[in-house]
Design a binder for these strands. Structure first.
Lengths: 113, 113
DNA sequence: TAGGGTGTTCGCCGACGAGCGAACACCCTG
DNA sequence: CAGGGTGTTCGCTCGTCGGCGAACACCCTA
């Protein structure tokens, strides 16, 4: 009698990553998240790719996977990233409409740079 | 025969502060400058005041004048601030149109926050 | 010209963030 | 069920940044 624990094929038992509530994200958090050049690279790559297309390890950035994992956490906390587990991989989606609604024009500046 | 060294009354001989060329300001520099809460306070106060209205010492921020001076330098380097000496004081102007042209919408986000 | 007001510069300190390797957890396939 | 692949967490180091006081430079007025 725990139907909520059932899962679709390919779904994970891992603890789902916590995603930020955009209303609670402070401007300072967003600016700091987007100021880092590695995170800018990730955001631009995500914008060019489709949703849920790219797993964490598929980005060409000059850092180890430990550092990369931390960068993804920062982007999540800033409301820029949504993650979903698919088997052993963690797929990513840029939360563009939500983020644009909260901070209009900010993401566009990074993508245009 | 050095007419360029003449000066209007109230004008200073002090070395004028260097102002950034907006074209050369990187997005990262602008984001980092605007991410600091003290600098956000300064920018908002400058936006409410008129150009050349407020000297450096007239802002209500909880830092010493040494730290404040450093914050102004950061804002200058980010292309957000223009300064002019008037007697013993240094008056400030928010470079809003220039900055808006270089980073559309960014300043508005800070002012609206 | 002496002095008070304004702002900058110089060291120094403490906090924070990005970086790494190692260890761990989880998933899928052989 | 053993192992390779993927990603996170932990502890640590190091550089950068914000903060301060002290000293200095400059301007105006008494």
């Amino acid at each position: 009698m725990t139907p909520s624990t059932e899962r679709a094929p390919g779904t994970s038992h891992r603890a789902a990553p916590e995603h930020a509530n955009l209303d609670e994200v402070r401007l300072e958090t967003a600016l700091l998240a987007l100021a880092d050049p590695v995170r800018q690279t990730l955001v631009r790559a995500l914008a060019e790719a489709g949703d849920w297309e790219r797993p964490c390890g598929s980005f060409d950035v000059p850092v180890t996977k430990a550092t990369l994992s931390r960068h993804f956490a920062v982007l999540r906390e800033a409301g820029l990233l949504e993650q979903r587990d698919a088997g052993p991989r963690r797929l990513n989606r840029l939360r563009r409409p939500e983020f644009d609604a909260r901070f209009p024009g900010l993401l566009a500046l990074v993508l245009a740079d």
